[in-house]
Every structure is written in structure tokens, then in C-alpha cells.
Design a protein around this nucleic acid. Structure first.
Length: 880
RNA sequence: GGGCGUAUAGCUCAGCGGGAGAGCGCUUGACUCACAUUCAAGAGGUCACUGGUUCGAAACCAGUUACGCCCACCA
């Protein structure tokens, strides 16, 4: 690695170092959980990206947060495991593969199930490799040796085990119910995969004549075409308009069939005409009513989304065509009463946007009630904690109102349902090992259920299937329950909730202790990034031009838990600038360490040394506290401020005189503190910006193989020089004050002014040994000290800081009017502060009830401002 | 119909009981020997509104308004 020393370039080139260090970490096993075999286990199981395509900004955010937590814990000495993997993504992947086939001019039915699956696996390998490369480019420190895939052998075994166990407990059942059918994807989807959108539509009021010729009843519907499958008309049993009509029959127009008028409390008397047409085969509510009243289910819409053979002359028409024609026919029959506007929510497939058709078909379901109860209790007990806490309610509300989960999909890519049907005796066989013959009749004519499972069924097992379950592995024993799950709020229902009940059911324990929820990454205008809008920002492109560290920095800063963030170009540039700043600060450090010889001299710490060391310790503590709370953005902000403001703008500047012109001993101390502080800063920053910190850390004096394995600074064992910290704060104020006067008076840089500090001996003593600092940073030619009552220069600009009057006698440069204005402005500000403080201090309640230290602080502040005010007022009289 | 979030400087956002913050943008000045992807200084805010709790509220509570999101079998 020695040849990598390149401290000449004044700009950081991430491309040069990122690949090198990732390989180094891999080669040295730094990502293995066993790099810290003695540590307390810490485990994050990666939400598996779909193998459908490539990583987007959401993955980049998700991965960055996980990597920060993992690297931080690892540096703390924990036995940290970040377990990676990918998801087979049933519908999505199958759709992609089918699309590819279509381009070749064939359908999946042409090539058959086996050949299709081969294609799908090819697809999987190709995109899997791409995703892994992308995760690696991000700097992800996951343990690749333990990588998993939802459709791999182990996960398949876990799925099989779970299915059979739930089946045996009657928690999985098969039945003909109405489910959500997507005619484009050609499969059923679960309730949460249906997206509801408000669409403007109409309410058609149709007349259904009574069979006995006594007039008609008007039904209101948004779906006239389904009338072909009507098997009743329902009204509220207590609706006075209809009580005497219940039990009559109506003549279903067009179809010319008698159907009953029934009473059912489902009907809302207020809505429409109070009468509802009932189509049990095409509406979930009607389905329920149909069951209650033993109505016939007549399917008139087929799986292709067109009217079927039961639709008579309308057979073959699309739903919308048929709708128009039915309405026309009602009109011509004189049975169209009215058409009114209505906006109502339409269910659409989350994948393809196709309108969902409720259809009756035999499907497999998970019985949710018994599984949801422990999952709710576990969160209420606090076994699993949501961060931020507000998502607890999102979770429990959903769990409490949960409905059975339809898990069968009419796809080929996925876990095949482990159920066989005996072709001879009709037995249903659900077993862990593929059966040879029917256990009931011994027949060999068995046929496996053609369907596969919802992808989320396998994802639900992810926290333990990846650790080896159903085998009782050491890994499972050591790392389950996992420490934290990091994911977006958009999949709390799809995934988090299902992992919860699956973990509790199969493992008897929650799958993770914390759920750290983040928002989604939006574009500059706050819009969701999407393919159709074409507003997506490719993380890989950002990495290519700015580096992974800059991308990670951008994603972490300004991102608070659970909230969405906007990705703006100028923020990534800011991140890039920060990396460059560190690069150059390190260059400076390295240039001055050429002759550094550890231990050569005893340290002789100066004021500024003690200040920066104390600040480093405090920032370290603050960073850890924030990371514990999952406040990653706050942690990083503290590091940023420390490095840029305190270390670069103050410490480095003040170290220069000793480095350039100091004695050998002085130079040594400065080198030592410089290197130690920079090293601490790099270590603090490492989880957020792994590449640049490794590159620089390696070049600094260090112990150990990699910064990844350095102890994360926590500031616990460092001495705190509190007195020096306070004193240096005063120095900073004085410097800023002088700089302010210089800038306001437009004193040219080259023009150095003499500065007089006047005050009580006690106040002056605070800054006495900091003269050189003030002279250097405030461009002062000479610094004089004087007693408080010294006769002061006539034509001097003045400021006042902490009991010290600061005079800049700038003959010829002082613009009297400007100085008056400047002083008046400062006086006004001071008076304002005093007013507020005196109000506070004259408040008996405040003095009696506020904590003593707060009262003390305010009192001190008050007298300080008073001194400042009188000092400035006195000064003003000199000019008037 | 239920639930949730957000409203702080021109923009993007932190802060969430004790002196209004950052980055970007803007103004002014500086190529100061690590960095102009820089340095220094500055302007800019009744912290959405109304009540309440408190000695003290941007922060806590209640309500209001605006925008956004999620859930719900609204023919």
C-alpha cells in the first residue's frame, strides 16, 4: 500500500482509491462477523433487493444507513454481521422475463414451465451479479460469504417447512373466494398489492322491473356491465321505501331472469336509491351477501378481462365496451333512469396499473387473526421497537384490522406450493418431502398444485431462513433475534409485519429488536422518482462523478428518521467539497509529519492543543449518543462541524507557527496533536465515508490493519481540559470581534493594526498566553494589555468581549460615521438582550423555580452584557 | 370515514422546554506557503394561526388552516 501515498494532488480523486480499498477489505476478511469473534453479536439482515434490475436511490439510502450502523458497531468491537441477499421477486421478475421472451416472439406457454424457469434463472444470475457489484461500489461492508437468495436451497427449505407447519395447524387453507385478479399479470394478488385511486366516474341508475308488473326498482351502480351476473337486488331491511317489496322478484333486464329482492343490513339507505344490484361473482361485498343469502355466483368476466360465455351476446367484449353497450341497451329499453357523476376509488395492480377484477377462484390463504395477535402483543410489550415510534401505530392499526392473506400466485417463478392432489381419490397432500404416492389410496397419480407462493411469503422468513433455519445452526443461535431492521415505511405492511408474525410463529421470538424506518428519496421537486417520469437519479452515476463517500454523505445528512428527503445536485457538491476538505487537511498533516518520530519528546500541550483534544472527546461522545438514537444525520453533522470549523479553521491554522517556526519540541507536540486529532476525526467519519477515511488513515501513523478495525472514538477515556476549553472560546470571540471590525472598516488584509485589550487583571489573565493566537488569526501587528481604567486611544474602533475592551486604533482608516453606526448596532443588540434578561431575572417565579445553574448562567450573562453596554456607550460619546 | 406527517432564513432542511441554526444562494473583501471544491465578514426569520400548560414554548397540550402520505368492502 505504500505506493499509494500521493499527497501531491490538491483534489481528492475517489476513483483512484475506492476500488483498491474494497478489494483490500475483502481480501483481509474485514467484513466477516468473525473479525471480532469475542464481541457481543450485532446483526442486520439486508432487505433483499429484487433481482429485476438495478439499484436505485432508495437502495442506496437503505444500504448506506445499514452500513453506517454496521461499521460503527464493528468498530465498537461488536461481532457485527450484515447479511446480504437478493429477492426473486416473483411477479416482477416473471414479467421481465416474459417481456424478453415476447421480444423473441414467443410466450411462456410456447416454451413450457421448465424452459421458462431456466430463462428466469439466467436472468437472476445476470442481475444478481450487477446488484452485488453495485452494493460493493457503495462500500457495503456485508459478509458476502453468507449471502442468500430467497429462492436458494435453504430458503426453499424454510418456505416448505413453514408452509407445511401452518397447513397442519390449519393456519393455511385453500378455498374458493373472491380475490383480486390482474388480467395483465394473469395472477391473483393480495389485498395490499392493490392500489386504490380516486377516479371520476358515473353512477348509473338502472330500472329493474318487478316480475309481477308492479313498476320497477331503481338500482344505482358504477359497474353496469356486471348486471349480467346479478343474482339479486338488495335493500336495507328497515328501509320504509322497500319493506313491503322484500321477497318480491324482479325481472333482470337483457338476461330476462327472475331474481329476488332481498333485505340486507349492508345496504346504506342514504346512498343512491337505497337499492343495490348484487353480483356475487364480481364484487367482494356482493360475494359476502351472496354467501349470506345463498345466491348463485355467475361469473360473466373471464381471466382475460373480457366478457365470457355467460355474457351472451356481449361475450368477447372488453369490460368498458360492454359497459357502454349495456348502458345503451338500457336506454333503448327505457330502463335508464339517470346518470350522475361520481368519483370513486378504483383498484389497480401495483405492478402494472391494470384495473383489478374481483374474481372467484380457488386460492390458498393464511389465516391471519391467530398470527396477528402475538405480533401485536410483542410490539406493545416493547420486544420490538419502531424508530421513530409513530410507526408503531401504523403497524398495530394494520395488524388489528388484518384480513386473511392470499398467498397463491398463478405464476411459474417462485416457490411451488407443496401440495399434491391425488388424481384417483382426490386427497390433498401437503408434506415436507415430495411424495411418491398417495398416502390414502397409494395411487401414483399425483399432481402438484401448479401455483407458486407470493414472494413475500419467503421474504417473511428472511431474518431466520438466512441464518440457517430450519436447521439449528450456530449462526441462528448467535444472531437471532437480529439487532435492527432498516427499511422504508413503504413496506411496513408487505414485509415488516409479516416478518414479525412469521418470526414469532416459527422461532417463538421477534425477528429484530429495533425497526429503523426511513423515508423515500425524492427528486429535486419533491416528486417520487419513477421510471415513467424519468426523474430517477442513478446512484452509480453519482458515484462515478463524485465518489461513493460523497453519495453516502449526501444521503445521511439532512435525513431524519422516517422522513422523506429530496436529492439535490448542490448537496452532492457540498459533500464532494467536504471530502476535498478532509483530503487537503490530511495532506497538510502528512506534509508536516515527514520527520515525526513517535515518542521522541515529551508532550508539552498548549492551550489550543488542549482545546482541540477536549473538543474531539466531546464530539466523539455526542456522535455515539446520536448513533445510539439512530440520529445518523445529527451524528454526521457534528463530525462535519468539528472537522471543518474547529479542526481546519482554528486548530490547523494555529498549529502552523509551531510546525514552521517552533522548536523541535514544540513542533513535535503540534505534530502529535495534529495527527491524533485527525486520526480521531477520520475514525469518527469512517462509518459514513469509508473509502477516503481508509486511504488517509493508512498514511497517518496508526496501529492495526485497517481503520475498519480501529476502536471507534467515544471520548470516554480522554482527559477533558474544561478550563482551557473555556479560555479558548474567549480567544475565538476576541478574534471574531477584531475580524468583524476589520471587515466592517474595510481594513485591507495587508494592513496590520495594533490592538489594545483593556480589562481587569482576572479577565486579561484568561487570554494572556493566547496573544500569539490573536495576533495571527486577527491580523494584528501588536497586542497590548492595559488595566481597565487606562486612558484609551481617541480614534479607535471598539468592541467588548467578556470583560475585555478591544480597541483598534486605526488612524486614517476609521470612518467615524461607520463606527458610530457599527457601535449603535451593537448597543441595540446588547440592550435587547439585557431587556430580555432583566425581565427574566426580575421574575420571582423564574428565580424560585428555575434550576439554580440556569439562574446563575443568566445572572452572569446579565452582568456581562451590562459591562459590554456601558463600555460601548462610553465609547460612543467619544465620537459624538 | 379513520390514521399519520409536514409548516423554522430566498431554497433544501436540522433543532423539539432555558441566548433562533447549517448547507446552498445572496452581498462585501481576500489567489494568506493544505485546500478558490478555499478563507474572512455580513445581510436575511412575530420558528403557519389561535388558545392553553409552564417561572420560561419554535419545541409540550388542544384547536384551526394549508400541503402531503397511508389505510378502509363509498353500490
Amino acid at each position: 500500500m505504500e505506493e499509494s501515498k500521493n499527497i501531491l494532488a490538491t483534489t481528492y480523486q475517489p476513483q483512484d482509491v475506492e476500488q483498491k480499498w474494497y478489494k483490500f477489505w475483502l481480501d483481509n476478511g474485514c467484513f466477516s462477523s468473525e473479525i471480532n469473534p469475542q464481541g457481543e453479536p450485532f446483526c442486520i439482515v439486508m432487505p433483499p433487493p429484487n433481482v429485476t434490475g438495478q439499484l436505485h436511490m432508495g437502495h442506496a439510502l437503505d444500504g448506506t444507513l445499514q452500513d453506517v450502523l454496521t461499521r460503527w458497531r464493528r468498530m465498537q468491537g461488536r461481532r457485527a454481521l450484515w447479511l446480504p441477499g437478493t429477492d426473486h421477486a416473483g411477479i416482477a421478475t416473471q414479467a421481465k422475463v416474459e417481456e424478453a421472451l415476447r421480444e423473441e416472439g414467443v410466450s411462456r406457454y410456447d416454451i413450457g414451465r421448465e424452459a421458462f424457469l431456466e430463462k428466469a434463472w439466467e436472468w437472476k444470475h445476470r442481475y444478481h451479479d450487477r446488484i452485488v457489484r453495485q452494493l460493493q461500489k457503495m462500500g457495503s461492508s456485508c459478509d458476502w460469504d453468507k449471502e442468500r437468495f430467497t429462492l436458494d436451497e435453504g430458503c426453499s427449505k424454510a418456505v416448505r417447512e413453514t408452509f407445511v407447519e401452518l397447513y397442519n395447524k390449519k393456519l393455511i387453507y385453500r378455498g374458493s373466494y373472491i380475490t383480486n385478479w390482474c388480467s395483465h399479470c394473469q395472477t391473483t394478488i393480495s389485498d395490499i398489492e392493490v392500489e386504490h385511486t380516486e377516479r371520476p366516474s358515473h353512477l348509473w341508475h338502472l330500472r329493474y322491473p318487478y316480475a309481477d308488473g308492479s313498476g320497477y326498482v331503481v338500482v344505482a351502480t358504477t359497474r353496469p356491465e356486471t348486471m349480467l351476473g346479478d343474482t339479486a337486488v338488495a335493500v336495507h331491511p328497515e328501509d320504509p321505501r322497500y319493506t313491503d317489496k322484500i321477497g318480491k322478484t324482479v325481472m333482470l333486464p337483457i338476461v330476462n331472469k327472475e331474481i329476488p329482492l332481498i333485505g340486507d343490513a349492508y345496504c346504506d339507505m342514504e346512498f343512491g336509491t337505497g337499492a343495490v344490484k348484487i353480483t356475487p361473482a364480481h364484487d367482494p361485498n356482493d360475494f359476502e351477501i351472496g354467501l349470506r343469502h345463498h345466491l348463485e355466483q355467475i361469473t360473466v368476466i373471464g381471466k382475460d378481462g373480457r366478457m365470457n360465455e355467460n355474457a351472451g351476446k356481449y361475450q368477447g367484449q372488453t369490460i368498458l365496451e360492454c359497459r357502454e353497450n349495456i348502458v345503451e341497451e338500457f336506454r333503448s329499453l327505457g330502463l335508464l333512469e339517470d346518470i350522475t357523476d361520481l368519483s370513486h376509488s378504483v383498484g389497480e395492480c401495483y405492478r402494472c396499473g391494470t384495473a383489478i377484477e374481483p374474481l372467484i377462484s380457488p386460492q390458498w390463504f393464511v389465516r391471519m387473526k391467530p398470527l396477528a395477535e402475538p405480533a401485536i402483543a410483542a410490539v406493545e410489550k416493547g420486544d420490538t421497537r419502531f424508530v421513530p415510534a409513530r410507526f408503531t401505530r401504523t403497524y398495530t392499526n394494520w395488524m388489528e384490522n388484518i384480513r386473511d392473506w392470499c398467498i397463491s400466485r398463478q405464476l411459474w417463478w417462485g416457490h411451488r406450493i407443496p401440495v399434491w392432489y391425488c388424481q384417483d381419490c382426490g386427497a390433498e397432500i401437503c408434506v415436507k418431502e415430495d411424495p411418491d404416492c398417495c398416502p390414502q389410496c397409494g395411487s401414483k397419480h399425483l399432481e402438484q398444485d401448479p401455483d407458486v407462493l407470493d414472494t413475500w411469503f419467503s421474504s417473511a422468513l428472511w431474518p431466520f431462513s438466512t441464518l440457517g433455519w430450519p436447521e439449528k445452526t450456530q449462526l441462528l443461535h448467535d444472531f437471532y433475534p437480529t439487532s435492527v431492521l432498516v427499511t422504508g415505511y413503504d413496506i411496513i405492511f408487505f414485509w415488516v409485519a409479516r416478518m414479525m408474525f412469521s418470526g414469532l410463529e416459527q422461532m417463538g421470538e421477534v425477528p429484530f429488536k429495533d425497526v429503523f424506518i426511513h423515508g423515500i428519496v425524492r427528486d429535486e421537486l419533491g416528486r417520487k422518482m419513477s421510471k415513467s417520469l424519468g426523474n430517477g437519479i442513478d446512484p452509480l452515476e453519482i458515484i462515478d462523478s463524485y465518489g461513493a463517500d460523497s453519495l453516502r454523505f449526501t444521503l445521511v445528512t439532512g435525513n431524519s428518521p422516517g422522513n422523506d428527503m429530496r436529492f439535490k445536485q448542490d448537496r452532492i457538491e457540498g459533500a464532494r467539497n467536504f471530502m476535498n476538505k478532509i483530503w487537503n487537511a490530511s495532506r497538510f498533516c502528512l506534509m508536516n509529519l515527514e520527520d515525526y518520530d513517535e515518542g521522541k519528546y515529551a508532550l508539552n500541550l498548549t492551550l489550543v492543543d488542549k482545546w482541540i483534544l477536549t473538543r474531539a472527546a466531546r464530539v466523539s461522545a455526542e456522535v455515539n449518543a446520536n448513533l445510539e438514537k439512530y440520529e445518523l444525520g445529527e451524528a454526521l453533522r457534528a463530525i462535519y462541524d468539528f472537522i471543518w470549523d474547529e479542526f481546519c479553521d482554528w486548530y490547523v491554522e494555529l498549529a502552523k507557527p509551531r510546525l514552521y517556526r517552533g522548536t523541535a519540541e514544540e513542533r513535535y507536540t503540534a505534530q502529535h496533536v495534529l495527527a491524533a486529532t485527525l486520526r480521531t476525526a477520520l475514525e469518527l467519519l469512517h462509518p459514513f465515508a469509508p473509502f477516503i477515511t481508509e486511504e488517509l488513515w493508512q498514511q497517518l501513523p496508526h496501529e492495526g490493519l485497517s481503520i475498519m478495525l480501529a476502536k471507534y472514538p467515544d471520548g470516554q477515556d480522554e482527559p477533558l481540559y474544561e478550563e482551557d476549553e473555556k479560555r479558548f472560546a474567549i480567544v475565538m470571540e476576541i478574534v471574531r470581534s477584531i475580524r468583524n471590525i476589520r471587515a466592517e472598516m474595510k481594513v485591507p488584509m495587508g494592513k496590520k493594526a495594533a490592538v489594545l485589550l483593556a480589562g481587569e487583571a482576572e479577565a486579561l489573565a484568561m487570554v494572556e498566553d493566547a496573544q500569539a493566537y490573536i495576533i495571527q488569526l486577527a491580523h494584528v501587528s501588536e497586542l497590548q494589555f492595559a488595566a481597565a481604567d487606562t486612558r484609551i486611544p481617541d480614534k479607535a474602533a471598539k468592541s467588548h468581549v467578556r470583560g475585555i475592551d478591544i480597541y483598534l486604533p486605526l488612524e486614517g482608516l476609521i470612518d467615524v460615521d461607520k463606527e458610530i453606526a457599527r457601535i449603535e448596532k451593537e448597543i441595540a443588540a446588547t440592550e435587547n438582550d439585557l431587556k430580555r434578561l432583566s425581565g427574566k431575572l426580575s421574575n420571582a417565579g423564574f428565580l424560585a423555580k428555575a434550576p439554580a445553574e440556569v439562574v446563575e448562567k443568566e445572572k452572569a450573562r446579565y452582568s456581562e452584557y451590562q459591562a459590554k453596554l456601558s463600555s460601548l456607550q462610553e465609547h460612543l460619546t467619544l465620537f459624538k
